[in-house]
Structures are given as structure tokens and as C-alpha cells.
Design a protein around this nucleic acid. Structure first.
Lengths: 180, 180
DNA sequence: AGCCATTTAGTTGTGCACAATTGAGTTGTG
DNA sequence: CACAACTCAATTGTGCACAACTAAATGGCT
């Protein structure tokens, strides 16, 4: 979706609009209805924020020729130098089903190199190439532009991050429990 | 072996002169290093939270035979009864490229019906079928289970939602500005 | 009326997320 | 040593997000 030049037309995300009478079921007050509406707002908010973030990164990273997940991978590689796919996935909470094709594209782009570990033929070491390492210089501009785009002061960003991490931990545990 | 990051880069061109980032990692203050690390933390946190949320919904919605985006669509339809694709997309910030195949799958599953509007042959009205409307009863359980999974009290959920909506608004505006 | 910009869904192509499976490689145990 | 259990990466298949494009319908305009 192109950055919508039109401001949120009919429905700003925070609009707890008055009940639409078009619904087939009239709501019993205090029933699950309220919960459904709340649920729509909550899960939608997180989803929308994630996609909005993605959109900003998409625009900013276009110059570097990276997608947002590719940028995340490069950030980890810049920080750690070289890692087996497994370790990379642990850092990013991604599995080989996502990483294998992504890394193949990064290799085609000449940014990383993949080679079987000599010590353990099962594992594949991923390391940035010269070009991949050089790209880091150009990436230094990115974070400040992102932070500026949020319009949030740094301490609030940190607070939000802490909340989200707490949320993630709780949700992961809950998903595991539900799955069992 | 040496997890040592690549040697310290050149100093960033323009120091934003804001207060020093109180990042948990002690690194050369003001260097781009801090920012890259911070960026990794921030964007990763939101991304991870979104995917964790998705994971919990996936588990809970499996009984209903819905995916998370399909559930979002049904929530809107349960609330509004019937909508053209365009309106649906406005509510969810999704375009036809995403909605068309998704709605086709919902139609195949017998949950919605699509028909060209008589008044405007361009638009397609989407409305829940009997079966789709009936599914709502079984969905009433979902939100409570989600909220329970977060472990967050309701007021904190609302506060988080407000922050995320503010973030989304700012990011959308910034993406539009960058794109221009 | 005829023309034309706009609106609306749909289609195509690329890339990501994730479950399930495969197959090569490694390790523990008898 | 033999062999079962495990680990790791890759592959397959489904579904979503989004950009770019197509095609049809609409409405404004002269």
C-alpha cells in the first residue's frame, strides 16, 4: 500500500465508534459483545503498528536494497560477525523455513556468504561479505530516521519496548500452554 | 569465534545533540553503534510481539477454522453486517490485493457471500452467511482467552493500545512524508 | 452525446511466517 | 562397532502483505 496520502478516511484506529445498528445481532450489554469489540481494537492495534513500522522501514531501506527482515538479519551479522543459521534464528526467533530463502537472496545480492562448517557438516555459517560489511556504514543513518519517524522520546520508546517484551514472554508461554 | 563486532566505525556525521541514549549496553556514547543496537532492539520487539500475538491467535482460532486475518475480517463483518470490500479494507488498513484472495477463501469455507452491488457494479458487497453469523457465538470465548494469555490487566491493555495507535499514526505520516 | 479522470475489484509477482517433512550429519548407549 | 535418537538446514505447501497493473463501471465535463 502506498503511503496513504489521504489521512485515515472513515475509521481512525482509536475510534470507538458508536454502535452500528446494522449488526444482525442486537447486543446484550455486558455480554461477549463488548469483548469482541475490545478484541478487535487490541489485536488490530498491534497488527497495524507492526505493519506501519514495516512500511517506514520499507521506505527508508529501499536505498540500501534491503527488506525489513533482511535488515534485521544484517544487524545481527554486523553485531556478531558470523553465525550458523541456527544461532541467527535464535536471535531473531525465526526458523530455517524463513531464513533459508532469505539468506539465499542475501547471498545472491552479494551481501553474505554461506558455507558448511568444517567442524559440523550439518551447520551452515553465515558471514557478511566485504560488500555486506560496507553496507553497515550506510545503515548508520537508519535508526535515527526511524526514531524521528515515531516522534517518541527515547525514554518512552524504551518503556514501550519493555512492555512489548513482557507481552511477548507472556504470550509465548501462553501459546505453549494452549498448545499442550 | 571472536564475537567482537567489527571495529568501531567513523563517528556519525551529525550528532543530534539530544540527550545521550540511556541504552542498557555500554558502548562508545554517541556512536552509530548504539543506534544500530537500539534499533535492533526496538524494531525486533514490536515484530516479535506481533508474531507472538499471532501465534496465540493461531492456536485459539484453530478450533474455529480461522486464521488471524480472517478472524479480523469476521469481527468487522459481525459488527457491521455487510460491507463493500473497500470499506472492509478501510477498517483493517488492507487493500484488495490482500482481501480478494482472503475473502475467496472465506467464501469457499461458506462463511461469507460476495455479490456485486446493484447500485454500483464496481463494488462487491461482503456479508456473513448463516454459518458465518453462527460462528460468532463460538468466537465469544476468544477475547477473554487472549486477554488472559497476555497476563495484563485491562487498563494496561488500553494504555498499550493507545500508545500503539499513536505510534501508528505518527509512522503513517512519516512514511507518507518520506515517500514524497 | 462523447470523452476522460476516478473509483473499485481483481490479478500477478515478490517476499515473509510458519507447520510439516526430508535427509544428511552427529552423538549417546549398549 | 552398531544403531537409535537427536540436530541442523533445506524444502514444500499454505496463507498474508504489498506494489504494480488490468479491466470494468461511474460521474463530471464540455
Amino acid at each position: 500500500m502506498t503511503p496513504t496520502p489521504t489521512p485515515p478516511p472513515a475509521t481512525p484506529p482509536a475510534a470507538p465508534d458508536t454502535r452500528a445498528p446494522a449488526a444482525p445481532e442486537p447486543a446484550a450489554p455486558g455480554s461477549g459483545d463488548d469483548w469482541l469489540r475490545l478484541d478487535r481494537q487490541i489485536c488490530f492495534s498491534l497488527n497495524a503498528a507492526s505493519r506501519a513500522f514495516n512500511g517506514v522501514y520499507r521506505v527508508i531501506l529501499k536505498d540500501l536494497g534491503l527488506t525489513y527482515p533482511q535488515y534485521l538479519v544484517m544487524l545481527v551479522l554486523w553485531e556478531h560477525g558470523a553465525l550458523p543459521v541456527k544461532q541467527l534464528g535464535a536471535h531473531l526467533r525465526l526458523d530455517s523455513g524463513t531464513l533459508s530463502p532469505l539468506l539465499k537472496r542475501l547471498e545472491t545480492a552479494g551481501l553474505v556468504r554461506r558455507e558448511r562448517s568444517a567442524r559440523d557438516e550439518r551447520s551452515v555459517e553465515v558471514r557478511p561479505t566485504e560488500e555486506g560489511a560496507a553496507l553497515r556504514e550506510r545503515a548508520l543513518e537508519v535508526p535515527r530516521r526511524i526514531v524521528a519517524a515515531t516522534g517518541f522520546p527515547l525514554d518512552e520508546i524504551h518503556a514501550l519496548r519493555a512492555r512489548l517484551d513482557r507481552l511477548t514472554t507472556a504470550l509465548d508461554a501462553a501459546a505453549a500452554a494452549e498448545g499442550a
